[in-house]
Design a protein around this nucleic acid. Structure first.
Lengths: 335, 335
DNA sequence: GTGAAAGCGCTAACAT
DNA sequence: ATGTTAGCGCTTTCAC
């Protein structure tokens, strides 16, 4: 095979192909550009393709991006408290992006301190848009990107306080659904597991709704969306009080509560204790958990996101903003 | 703020900064190049940085890549039967890549037919290396990349039949561990859930080890690594036969077996039925499942992968190949 | 310490 | 239907 036909060190270029095929570089360019389909003499196309194959030539996407001022790359920034939820969303999102003819450059934030550096990398890459799913990220951190004029789309995190593009849910409304469910089924001694600066306002909205019905949450304890923090939260709540319900700001913590309640406190769920989570993780839907939870209409949201990407890559200066409603999935941890 | 100082439509360039700072473009380039740190008069640096900030200037990574012949991007190709396993690996991997100063361009394969097209995109992007974790991908599909001279590293999938770079496990040895465990604890009526063309040889090695001890598996049924396929497999096995153990080629299916055995057949695990999985999913480790499983030394493997990336980006023509041993995590689904 | 010229690989605009 | 010219934004010589 003609494996070694390229110039040492690098890849074959359009010029290499052009010379060997006896045409100009622009002709090679056109052969590999769908827009010129059919506007080049078939035998020329044939010859160019032939030589290209011999040389293992592929158009250099980097050079193309430079000229076209479009990379066809979407940056996807995911948060550190990924848990089960974001990693699922991630693969879905990547597939959608791929299907739209683009590619996903994925960034994962684990610590606060390097966020600026990472966003700096995003900025330098001249991606066509940035999708941010990390709810732990304060919006002002994204200012450098916005100031550059790089389109930012917040996904599945509140964008209410800003005028950036965003696809999010009315999480207060979701929290109301949870509160209603518990109150409706007779729960009165209610504990809450919340993130100290989750910024989602889920627990707050939940507590407010209880208050409207003259119920005060027995206790609120903190968790960081990890399974372990959920365990500790549950131990604390169930040791200190005689509860009949726990509301968790996130499913992974709800799963931990369920395990602790059953295995460590011998409670029957939902008879002795009801548990409601938030987010509809894949894992929470497993039969051994089957957690009642407040769910995002994730498919619709992804549809909206892809539309937003399409829009925003055409006109970066008009933000696309859509809010969705949440729904309650009543499974087996509530009556 | 000087938000609108850029030329219409695009981003500020080094030239823009140079003009406004009264220097040449090359000086701007140097100010933003770490290698020139300290070799430029501090007041020049100061002035350039000042103007750059006013203009929201960032060096154009695309242009840099074109000149440097390095994108600092690693392509990561993940398979369709992602389940819980790959999505976790993915976020870990992305973080590692990030920490090494590179970025991850993620591709997800869902259907067989567009694989070639997707790999074509990978090829055009001039990524510094390609990491392939999809075990459903036949190695010959990667030939175009290799022929181009683009470094491919197989990760967590057998690379034994090839001479491509790879980081993988001795899955036969892993399967032996599972077989030993079941036989040692007195299991004799053993069912198997395998992937018809998983190509991992896990079930085969498992069966061979049983044979060495004069045991024949009662039945082998097929699953595609999904939870649902695991359910069906379990129903079939447990309806047809009186088993005392099931070996699953993958954890998600083992979880399904556990649920079906407990909830639909009223079996006690591990007393009535032992279950062993493979891969050590995060979900399989949850207390409500706590599946005994054959695990990859995933941290070591990621370390090795990052080393391999480092190597291969320097010298693309010397493959880096390492095989690891697997270990048995005895949890609560075996005696 | 800084600059001028050339070129990375490609394509838009204008020829022919 | 194909070629020429110029330039995308940056960096690498080689000068000064």
């Amino acid at each position: 095979m003609a494996r070694k036909a390229q110039p040492a060190g690098g890849y074959a270029t359009g010029k290499d192909v052009a010379q060997r095929a006896g045409v100009s570089t622009i002709t090679v360019s056109r052969v590999f550009n769908p827009a010129w389909e059919g506007k080049i003499r078939p035998e020329t196309v044939e010859r160019v393709r032939q030589v290209a194959q011999e040389l293992n030539y592929r158009p250099n996407g980097v050079a193309r991006s430079l000229v076209n001022r479009r990379t066809n790359i979407i940056a996807v920034v995911i948060g550190q408290s990924a848990g089960f939820f974001y990693s699922e969303i991630l693969t879905d999102l990547v597939r959608r992006i791929q299907k739209s003819g683009r590619q996903a450059l994925v960034f994962s934030l684990d610590l606060y301190d390097n966020v600026a550096r990472i966003l700096e990398q995003v900025a330098q890459h001249r991606v066509d848009a940035v999708v941010v799913t990390s709810s732990a990220l304060r919006t002002d951190v994204m200012r450098p990107l916005e100031d550059m004029g790089m389109p930012v789309i917040l996904f599945k995190r509140s964008a209410e306080q800003t005028n950036i593009s965003g696809i999010w849910c009315d999480e207060r409304q979701g929290a109301l659904l949870a509160a209603d469910c518990l109150l409706r089924t007779g729960c009165r001694q209610i504990g809450i597991v919340a993130h100290p600066h989750g910024g989602t306002g889920r627990a707050q909205a939940f507590a407010e709704e209880l208050a409207r019905q003259n119920i005060t949450p027995v206790q609120t304890v903190w968790g960081d969306y990890s399974y372990e923090s959920g365990q500790q939260a549950a131990r604390k709540l169930l040791t200190d009080h005689q509860l009949d319900a726990i509301f968790c700001e996130e499913d992974t913590m709800a799963m931990a509560c369920l395990d602790v309640a059953r295995q460590e406190f011998g409670l029957r769920v939902p008879d002795d204790l009801a548990i409601i989570g938030f987010d509809n993780n894949t894992a929470a839907a497993l039969p051994a958990y089957n957690i009642t939870t407040v769910a995002h209409p994730i498919v619709d949201m992804l549809d909206a996101l892809m539309e937003a990407i399409e829009q925003v890559t055409c006109d970066p200066h008009t933000p696309v903003r859509r809010q969705f409603e949440m729904s309650l999935l009543e499974r087996s941890t509530t009556k």
